[in-house]
Amino acid sequence: MIICRCEEVLLRDIITSIENGAETLKAIKMETRAGMGICQGRTCRVLLEQAIAPYTDITIQETNNIMYKNPVRPISLANLSRSGKDSSQ
C-alpha cells in the first residue's frame, strides 16, 4: 500500500526503514524519500507520524518542533532568482 503518493513509497518501505533504525521523521524521509516529493508531505506527513508512533517513545508533540523550511511550496529556480524584486517594479 502506497503511503507517499508523490514519491510512490510503500508502507513496507517505511516499516523497513524504521526496523533498520530510522527513529525520526527526518530519518525516514532521508531513507525512503517519503514526504520529499512535490506536495512536500502535505498528504503523507501525518501518516508518517502515525506509522512511526508504535515504534518510538517520542510523542507527536515532541516530533513537532517541526521542521518546515522555506520554500514551503514548489518554486522554479528562475522565479526564485527573481525574488527580492519588489512587486511594483
Partner: peptide, 21 residues
Amino acid sequence: TEKGKAPRGIYCGIGHCYECR
C-alpha cells in the same frame, strides 16, 4: 507517475496534493 507509470487523477481537489498536475 514517474516510477511506477501508474495512473493518477483528482485527489484533494484544492491544490494541496499536486496529483492532478
